[in-house]
Write a protein that binds this DNA or RNA. Structure first.
Lengths: 209, 209, 209, 209
DNA sequence: CATGAATGAGCGTTCATTCAT
DNA sequence: GATGAATGAACGCTCATTCAT
């Protein structure tokens, strides 16, 4: 695989102003996501993407300076979808018990991992990070959901400790769901129950301890 | 046209007989591990490995049928080291409280992730699995440590539920440590304390609940 | 590990759409034929072919999935030329005597072997057959010429025996011409006379015997 | 495949004087012939030959300056065997009729092609000729058999014409048998009959014409 | 003499990227 | 703008041959 120095380093070569361009970009990104999910990063090629999108390679380079930038755009869109999936189970209804909160959280994360499992895995495990920014932004937003759960649990707040607790909770839930996804057990109700139990136990212990 | 008999390809091409060979194999694997950790799977090349090891490409193929088999050997050696690191905090001394057990477990996993962090990440996230066997064996052994902790906690055993609990615990601890490693906070004592708390809370809740 | 979908490989990678491509394909095939004839299959390399054609290796793989497919195309074109050469001495004029028929046949085969002797030898003797189809089609067409001669000879037809006779005649003429070509005596009139004599004798004996 | 300049150009590096050497050489050549027949020239490697012979590569280079010289020795031995097979049906018994002579000849050639068909084919079709000498010597000897048949046929001798006739006869019989071998019909009695007929017809026509 | 570990030029093939049309 | 033919550096891998032991 030849690694060429790309001629520009901006993430997007040209902001698509016109409707037609926007549509083309969408077509490209969607096709690229399909190809990426199907073949994996190692076999993700611009030529196949182009023909899957029904455009020429040249058109890809009209909008993206290089392959990585295209992948970056796929990641961006996917993370948005993931965030939307988490938020879907986040409506501001009368949630009261810690159990209910924990259940909402777990269901949200599971839903997020179900958006496009293979693409998710490839993006997380295979595609190299061009720039931290997108990922960081996402992680911050993601962590905020966890912090909200922490904050809503009884007990007096302690910013420093709560921050760490959020990261612990995030890592734990994420880790369990990730492992479950790898083994195709994302929908197991027993696992869901245990995971909720884990979250509850932690939250409870934090308020009593 | 006559049908040709292809030559078979085992996982190891030739068992090194002489002392010189054994040393060469070690040199190759060690150099390969360095290159793999530094460049990642996508840029892990046999030629760079060869020159990093101070041998010719041919020597790599004397002992490994292909690049993947070389990576497989790196994985094998690394997982052994990881297992050794976990076991290091596993001596059969008089551990009594759940807290002490949890602390041992967490310390072991952290130690395991400290062996060679970047190599660990690349092996887990990027290198494709040629055969499940090595990985499966490792995972089984790995899970066993968690099951042992579960089993040692008070409360009456329930094989099915305990199995799931083991996977939840494993996923959670692994997830937290993994995230911490990514952010360079593997040695943070606060994080350690919270993680131990998570494990304890879960174990306690399982025996009372 | 996810199972990857491999990309398929047809015999021709892409049908050349533009005029430029068609010209490139011709250039490549012609250069390849020259290289193949000059170096033999064992030393027939894509890189030399590319530079002999004045294109880059990539261009070869734009149109041919691999080296063998390129050789297959050379064979196809050559066999067409050979068939054309044989047919050249096949016009439907008033041929009456067996001698005249035999002479036409022999002259055709000699002409066929004169098309590009070295290429002919390499294609027949060295290049492995990827698919039987091209070769089989050619052989069938080739045999048909011999069968026609057999059929036109006096004597009552016997399908089974005539079939074998066709193969005997084909093998014999082919063998003599082949050997002559190897010794550079393809144009010898004495040899031509003897070969015609051989064919006539056989045909005569079949009708009387 | 790296092409190195061999350090010597003699066909055999060292004439094996001692019994042990002679045995080693035999072992090597026999193993090499098996490997060559099984894999074909393109996949015929010195390393596989060495391990098939139960010796080290170095030992091969003790007796043969390079791979081609080894193949040359295989050819030499095989052609001897072929000649022996032809001669086997050549005893000086009371052969009188032309038919009987022709039958003997055909049977001899068929027997020769049956010695080791795959090796025969590979040697003829794939292995390049290092030096003409071995092949030429064989061909001369081979032609002599045909000349003998020609000479023994009635009719007054004509050295020049008889020479050409020998080559025609040789090419024809060889060609038919070769084609038959390719189609696995070496043992067909119908084909044998037709071929004998061809030879007889030619011989007869030469004495009457 | 025999061994077999080591060499490295050279092969077939891929694919991100460019640019004439 | 869009196209897609063309590029060529770089990869994984092979195997004839050498030479220290």
């Amino acid at each position: 695989m030849a690694t060429r120095v790309p001629s520009e380093h901006g993430s997007v070569r040209k902001a698509p102003r016109q409707l037609r361009s926007r549509a083309t970009v969408d077509t490209i990104v969607e096709a690229a996501a399909r190809v990426l999910a199907r073949r994996g990063w190692a076999h993700f090629t611009t030529n196949e993407t182009a023909s899957a999108a029904g455009v020429s390679v040249g058109s890809i380079y009209q909008y993206f300076p290089n392959k990585l930038a295209l992948a970056e755009e796929i990641r961006k869109r996917h993370l948005d979808a993931v965030l939307a999936a988490i938020s879907g189970s986040d409506e501001r209804d009368a949630v009261i018990t810690v159990e209910q909160r924990a259940a909402k959280l777990v269901d949200g994360v599971v839903a997020a991992h179900s958006v496009d499992q293979e693409l998710h895995r490839v993006l997380l495990d295979e595609v190299p990070l061009a720039a931290r920014s997108t990922q960081d932004q996402f992680e911050a937003e993601y962590l905020r959901r966890y912090q909200a759960v922490i904050a809503s649990a009884p007990g007096k707040p302690d910013p420093k400790r709560d921050d760490i607790a959020g990261r612990v909770l995030s890592g734990a839930v994420e880790g369990v769901v990730h492992a479950a996804a790898r083994h195709g057990e994302l929908q197991s109700p027993e696992l869901r129950a245990e995971l909720i139990e884990l979250v509850c136990a932690y939250l409870r212990s934090r308020c009593t301890g």
